[in-house]
Computed example of a mutant assay.
Amino acid sequence: MSQTTLGRARAGDHDAFRELVEPYRQELRLHCYRLLGSLADAEDLLQDVLLAAWRGLDRFEGRSSVRTWLYRIATNRCLNALRDAGRRKPPEPVPPFEPPEPTRRAEPTWLQPYPDTLLDRIPDHGPDPEARYHGKEAVELAFITGLQLLPPRQAATLVLRDVLGYAAAEVADLLGTTETAVKGALQRARASLDRHRAAGHGRPPSPGSAAERELTRRFADAFTSGDIDGILALLTDDAWLAMPPAPHEYHGAEDIAAFLRASMAWSPSSTLHLTGTRANTQPAFACYLADEGDGAATPAGLVVLTLAAQRIRGITRFLSDDVFGLFGLPGTIPVTGPRARRPVP
C-alpha cells in the first residue's frame, strides 16, 4: 500500500479504495464464512464490511496493516450478526417420507458448503508460525461445523489465533479484550473443537488422486443404483450421515442403512443423477432427480464426502437447493440414461 493510494482513497477515489481492499476480498469472505457458517450470509456481510471500511477510512490511522484493519471490521461485524436476535435458526426441513429414529438430534446449525472454486482465488500467504490449522483442514466441514458449536467470541478467537496466526496481543486488540481473556477463550475453544473433530483414521487420499477418484466413483455407482450394501462397504466403523439444517444424524452402519432404505423407497420411479464438484476441499456431488419419462433432472441437494484413509467417514447432504446457485451449478441437467454420473473434478 502506498500513501498516495491511501490518500486518494481518503479523498473519495473509489478506484484507489478498490486497489486497497481488493487483494483481501476473497479471504475476508472465507473469514466471514468460517464464523457464520453460511456462504450466503458471508457474501452479504462482506459487502457490509467493505461499506464500513469505505465510510471509516478517515479513522484508519495506519498503526496496523490494511489487512488487519479489515479483519477487525469483519470479525466484529460477524460477532454482531451472531448476537442479532433477528438471525433466526434455519428452518428445519420436513422430509417427504417418515425417517427412522436418528442416532442423535443436534441443534440446527447455520451451515452451507463452500465451493472450492472460491478457495482457488485466495492468495497463499504462506504458513504462519502462530497458526495451528493450515489451509485444507481449516476449511473442512468438520472444522466449520465445530466452529458453529462454539460461543461466538471463542470461535473468533480461535480463527484469529489458530487459523490466521495473529499473536495473542493482536487478537486482544482486534476483539477489544485482554491477553488473559484471549488465552482462556482459546484454551476452551481448542478443547471443544478437538472433541468434535476427534479422528484417528489416517489421512484422506490427496485431492484429485487416483485413490480419491476410485473411492468417490464406487460411492457414486452405489448411491445412484440404490446399492445400500455397496455404500456401507465403503464406510468406516464410526461413519455418520448428517443433513444440515435438519437435526437428524445417523451414526454407524445400522442406522445409516435404515435411513438410506427409507429415503430410497420414497420415490422408486425416480432416477438419481450426480454431477461431480468440490466443496470445503472435499469431493462432492450435486444430486438431481428425474421422474420416469422426464427429459431433464432437477436439483435434489448436494452431498459432500468426508474421507479417511481409503474409506468414507462422513456423508453430509445439504438439502437446500439454494446452494446450487452458489456453486454455479445448472438448474436442470439432461437425462442421458436410466441413471447418470459425472465424475468429481
Rank of each mutant, 00 (worst) to 15 (best):
A257F: 09
E254S: 14
P245K: 01
Y250C: 04
A239R: 07
A242G: 07
D221H: 06
A220T: 13
A220I: 12
S225M: 07
L235I: 06
F219D: 08
F259P: 00
A253G: 09
G230W: 08
F223H: 09
G226D: 05
W240F: 14
A222C: 02
E249L: 15
A253V: 00
Y250M: 12
I256V: 14
F223Y: 14
L260S: 09
P244W: 02
D229V: 11
P244K: 00
L241Y: 00
W240Y: 13
A258G: 05
L260I: 10
D221N: 05
F223T: 04
A220G: 05
P245W: 01
M243D: 11
A246G: 04
F259C: 11
A253N: 00
G226N: 00
A257Y: 10
P244G: 05
F223D: 05
A239N: 06
D237I: 02
P247R: 06
E254H: 11
F223G: 08
Y250S: 01
A239D: 03
A246T: 00
D255A: 15
H248L: 15
A233Q: 03
M243N: 09
E249T: 15
G226L: 06
A253W: 02
R261Y: 02
Y250R: 06
G230N: 02
H251S: 08
D237T: 06
D229M: 04
D238V: 08
E254Q: 15
D221W: 07
I228W: 12
L260M: 12
E249V: 15
P247H: 12
A220R: 08
P244T: 04
A222S: 15
E249W: 14
G226F: 01
T224F: 05
D229Q: 04
P245M: 01
A233S: 06
S225D: 03
E249A: 14
D227N: 11
A220V: 12
R261H: 12
D238W: 03
D237W: 07
D229K: 07
Y250N: 04
G230A: 00
I256F: 11
T224W: 11
L241K: 11
A222H: 08
L241G: 00
A242W: 09
A246K: 08
I256S: 09
R261F: 10
Y250T: 03
H248P: 08
P245T: 02
A257M: 03
A233H: 05
M243Y: 11
F259W: 15
P247I: 14
I231G: 02
L235H: 09
D255G: 03
D229R: 13
L260K: 09
R218K: 13
P245C: 01
A257L: 00
L235Y: 08
R218V: 12
A257T: 03
A246Y: 07
F223V: 02
P245Q: 01
H251C: 13
L234A: 04
A258H: 11
I228V: 13
R218T: 12
W240V: 13
A257D: 10
A258W: 10
G230K: 08
A258I: 00
I228N: 01
F219P: 03
D255R: 14
